[in-house]
Simulated assay, not measured.
Amino acid sequence: MPVHVLIAHVAALVGPVSSALVVVYALVPAARARLRWPMVVTSLVTGVLFVVTASAGRALLADLDQTGVDVNAAYRHAKFSDTATTLAVVSAILVPVAALRPLRPGVGRGPSTRVWAVLLCVLAVGLLVITGYTVLMAVGAAWGADA
């Protein structure tokens, strides 16, 4: 089994868990003390997993392209994967920043905390949606069906 497939399965599991932690952390200030470090760690792990998965995917795509098989569905999957990777990396940067400053436990509710909370929620939901769609595109590429 290609390395890309193995790592992608892990990323597809860790990514949504990270997104859920980010949303709860952003919207439930009372939970921030408990969720702060698990959220930061899963966000960082997600960012790394997506980058490694994308790199392995590019290598797999290059190998497949040389075999002469139709790789159009794989290219569509790769385009969505690039977007998911970008969101995961941005989240891996912004989540720790938010957890250490504007949304750290005990910070009052002000305009900047609301802006950061909305920003994190948008990133988390965006990552969740694009990851799901990328998985559908992967299934279509692997099984020869349009997702």
Rank of each mutant, 00 (worst) to 15 (best):
R34K: 13
R76V: 10
T46N: 09
Y75T: 07
V22I: 15
R58E: 12
I7W: 03
Q66F: 08
Y25D: 03
M137N: 06
A30E: 15
R36I: 02
T86H: 03
V45I: 08
S18M: 09
V23R: 04
R32L: 06
A62K: 09
V90M: 04
T131F: 01
G15H: 05
G57F: 04
V129F: 01
R109G: 05
R101S: 12
G110N: 12
V10N: 08
W37N: 14
P29L: 14
A12H: 10
M39L: 02
F80S: 06
Y133W: 13
V139Y: 14
Y133F: 11
T83K: 03
A62D: 15
P2T: 07
L127Y: 04
F50L: 14
L127I: 01
S55N: 09
A141H: 02
V45N: 01
A31I: 09
D70Q: 02
L64C: 07
G132H: 00
G57K: 06
D70A: 07
A33V: 11
Y25F: 13
V69Q: 14
S19W: 07
A117K: 03
G110W: 00
G57Q: 06
A145T: 10
F50R: 10
S43F: 12
V3F: 12
M1N: 10
A26C: 04
T86Y: 07
L87K: 01
L100F: 12
V40I: 15
F50Y: 11
V122T: 10
Y25R: 04
V40E: 02
A33Q: 13
L27T: 10
T86M: 11
S55E: 14
V5I: 13
I130N: 04
R114D: 06
L127A: 08
D146I: 05
A78Q: 11
L44R: 12
Y75H: 13
Y25I: 00
G132N: 04
L120W: 07
P111F: 14
A142Q: 12
A8V: 14
L21V: 04
L128N: 03
A138P: 00
A84Q: 07
V69D: 07
A78V: 01
L35E: 07
A26R: 11
V71C: 05
I93H: 03
A138L: 14
L123D: 08
W143K: 11
A54G: 09
T86L: 14
A33M: 04
R76L: 09
V122P: 02
L119F: 08
S112W: 15
